[in-house]
Design a protein around this nucleic acid. Structure first.
Length: 409
DNA sequence: TCTGGGGTCCTAGGACCC
DNA sequence: TCTGGGGTCCTAGGACCC
């Protein structure tokens, strides 16, 4: 296989940096971006905040305990989406092969661009300069023969790093690298590997394939390849809208609730959000999933598949409610989620006659009002009676464009 | 007043069909 | 009214990512 040149670009402390750019008073200060709900967590910490131990995923209270001067900012998804879109567009000047990996990360296949621009390092320098000039932001860039190693490289120097891994360096680099450094090996897998006395990528790459296969199934082969620094996955541009497999919403309630009416109201709200997004992007789905997390954090899911493709909020709600009503809840509910899968992307034709047409038109009108005045300006009766709004955490995993662009008011 | 929310992919078992 | 095996669809759950 031909040697490829892959770049991974990772914006440094993206949300916090965008906030510091937008508000000069925050610059040089410990800043943490959070969601809006009562039980939210830290989404991104500025480097000043990281210096005193504030990390993503931490509760607000713990973060404040670690850093008394911490400035909390409720995340503004629109701001991050706009900046991200501008940056992703800029990356397209160097190759059409741009894979948007998250709101603040992208892979570029530069193999065919080198002749035009000279070298990957030249391109990296230009990208860094433009992002700094246009947005006042820094990024870390990794350049390597594949995505696995490019991502590893971008992690090696932060902030504002540039790291190149050449094909000749791979074996020596992997030898003592902990397996947990690789994207795709999380805590659970690392622990399983440790039970086999595998801690470094070198050990993983040399480990007998038969044993890995027995323990991890088909993933075992992939693991061994990863240990050797091998990754053949292509950079896939425009993965978003065309390939999305599910649309969902979930929310941790401000308080645990047991009242069925409150649970139904929340479920309706979630179904409305899912339906609205499905309509906006012209997808329908046959399977509805309900997720419940109890007060003690145990989490369950149920799904139901019908004969028809669903898109209207009432239909999604009806399916989710059916799943809920079949259950006996044994604890107060902490989190509720609704997800639509089994998607079709050709959209749904407007029915020509009768009740179905009337419902479809009413749905469209409701969407239009919501789009204009914000989420839930118009919605179903019982949602209006809802007292408590769940927490909406804005996550760096939200994609800047396409189906995953969730615009929460 | 510990512990968010958006996703993707994989596994395993059962139903059902040929 | 016994038997095998492959394929597909479905449900439930878990690992992992940002």
């Amino acid at each position: 296989m031909k040697t490829r040149t892959i770049m991974h670009i990772d914006m440094n402390a993206f949300f916090a940096s965008v906030e510091q750019q937008a508000n000069p008073a925050l610059r040089g200060k410990p800043v943490a971006v959070t969601g809006s709900g009562a039980r939210t967590i830290i989404t991104t910490a500025s480097y000043e905040a990281r210096a005193c131990g504030v990390k993503t995923g931490m509760t607000v209270r713990e973060a404040q305990q670690r850093c008394r001067e911490l400035i909390l900012v409720v995340g503004d998804n629109r701001k991050y989406t706009a900046t991200s879109t501008a940056i992703m567009t800029l990356l397209g000047d160097y190759t059409p092969e741009v894979e948007v990996f998250s709101i603040d990360e992208a892979f570029l296949d530069l193999t065919a661009s080198l002749a035009l621009f000279g070298s990957a390092e030249t391109i990296a320098a230009r990208i860094k300069t433009r992002i700094r000039q246009n947005h006042g932001l820094t990024c870390s860039i990794g350049i390597a023969p594949n995505k696995l190693l490019a991502k590893l490289a971008s992690e090696m120097r932060k902030p504002d790093g540039l790291t190149v891994i050449t094909p000749g360096e791979v074996t020596a680099l992997m030898e003592h690298l902990p397996v947990s450094e690789l994207c795709g090996i999380g805590g659970k897998t690392a622990r399983q590997l440790a039970l086999l006395n595998i801690r470094s990528c070198g050990e993983l790459g040399r480990f007998p394939l038969a044993v890995l296969r027995k323990k991890f199934g088909i993933v075992g082969e992939r693991l061994q390849q990863m240990g050797r620094g091998i990754d053949t996955a292509p950079v896939v541009a425009d993965v978003d809208a065309a390939a999305v497999k599910s649309v969902g919403h979930s929310t941790t309630l401000d308080r645990d609730i047991s009242d069925p009416q409150q649970i139904h109201a929340c479920l309706l709200q979630l179904a409305e959000m899912v339906g609205r997004r499905a309509r906006r992007y012209g997808v329908t789905g046959r399977t509805v999933h309900l997720t419940i997390r109890y007060a003690d954090f145990t989490t369950f899911g149920w799904q139901t598949t019908g004969a028809r493709q669903l898109q209207r909020s009432e239909e999604i709600f009806a399916a989710a409610r059916q799943l809920l009503d079949a259950l006996v809840l044994t604890q107060p509910v902490r989190l509720l989620g609704v997800r639509l899968t089994g998607l079709q992307h050709n959209g749904m034709q407007l029915p020509l006659f009768g009740e179905e047409r009337r419902k479809a038109l009413a749905t469209g009108a409701m969407d239009a009002v919501n789009d204009r005045f914000g989420e839930f300006a118009v919605t179903f009766g019982s949602v209006l009676q809802r007292e408590k709004r769940g927490s909406y955490v804005i996550s760096p995993a939200w994609r800047p464009a396409g189906i995953r662009n969730v615009e929460v008011e």
